[in-house]
Design a protein around this nucleic acid. Structure first.
Length: 272
DNA sequence: ACTATTTCCTGGATGC
DNA sequence: TGCATCCAGGAAATAG
């Protein structure tokens, strides 16, 4: 499932490949689920624009589009990949694969295709040019602000980390991995953690995200980047999906529990 | 204002 | 082998 490092990798790859290209036509599939805006709004916002940049905000891909001579010159196409969403760049004529929900024809003769079997992904458009996610970027936040964000929360720290209104971009993989590195059990209440523990956690989150970005993200299930390449960070996971396997530090079997309705993995000896 | 729970979706794994 | 059931999870919706 694409989280911050995966979306960052995908957005960078997309930027490299389609920045400067022009959108000539847009096709939106029948299934309404993947849309937050109406299909017509998306078509109207995209057609005839130039792709100025592609970037990541939280777990979302933002295409900054510039329209010629239109009232709001700048608009954004926002893509959330959900669990299984993929954004492909293919040459015109490539066979349409199953679960393709949108096809964007580019002036260069290629197409951007949104494919998402599970349909947890979402497409939307914005006319303003100042799109911001609801939370704070984990790689930009300082330790003091991080502590302020979490120290009053009574929910389990893992559930708080997954709350995109607080911090955005951290999902199940990196929440588990950061908590392991910080030596904190996922069920600990956020407001029961010491300042030192929250400081450590802040550092661990930034460390694990930076390492994952450097390796192109984690390829679990069917994640691939804009070039169809797999990431390599899954080889560095200490706890995620390692239930029953020995901890890399102390050899204790990794345990799996449910926190906030999510599969959660931790080392019962290294994490307190 | 929070927190907890349910819901959406399909493919792959598991069970009988 | 075949069919049914379960499970994965981001985030919105709903309930408490």
């Amino acid at each position: 499932m694409p989280e911050l490092p995966e979306v960052e990798t995908i957005a960078r790859g997309l930027a490299q490949r389609v920045r400067g290209d022009k959108i000539e036509a847009v096709w939106i599939g029948e299934k309404p689920e993947p849309l937050k805006s109406t299909a017509q709004d998306i078509v109207d916002a995209l057609e005839g624009t130039a792709i100025v940049s592609v970037r990541r905000v939280g777990k979302q891909i933002v295409f900054d589009l510039e329209a010629e001579g239109a009232k709001p010159k700048m608009r954004q196409w926002i893509v959330h990949l959900g669990m299984t969403g993929r954004m492909l760049v293919v040459s015109h004529g490539t066979a349409i694969e199953n679960h393709t929900h949108a096809v964007v024809t580019l002036a260069s003769g290629r197409e951007l295709r949104f494919v998402d079997p599970r349909r947890f992904g979402r497409l939307s458009v914005r006319r303003e040019s100042d799109f911001q996610g609801s939370g704070v970027e984990p790689l930009e936040i300082g330790a003091a602000e991080f502590i302020r964000l979490f120290c009053k929360r009574s929910s389990p720290i893992k559930a708080a980390l997954l709350n995109q209104k607080l911090l955005h971009g951290v999902g199940n993989i990196y929440a588990d991995e950061a908590l392991f590195r910080a030596g904190i059990r996922p069920r600990r209440r956020a407001n029961a953690l010491t300042r030192a523990q929250l400081t450590k956690l802040h550092w661990s989150i930034q460390e694990v995200l930076r390492e994952a970005i450097a390796l192109g993200g984690s390829s679990v299930s069917d994640y691939v980047d804009a070039n169809g390449e797999k990431g390599f960070f899954q080889l560095r996971h200490h706890v995620y999906l390692r239930t029953g396997q020995p901890c890399h530090v102390c050899r204790t079997p990794i345990r799996r529990i449910t926190v906030g309705g999510r599969g959660t993995h931790y080392c019962p000896k290294c994490q307190k």
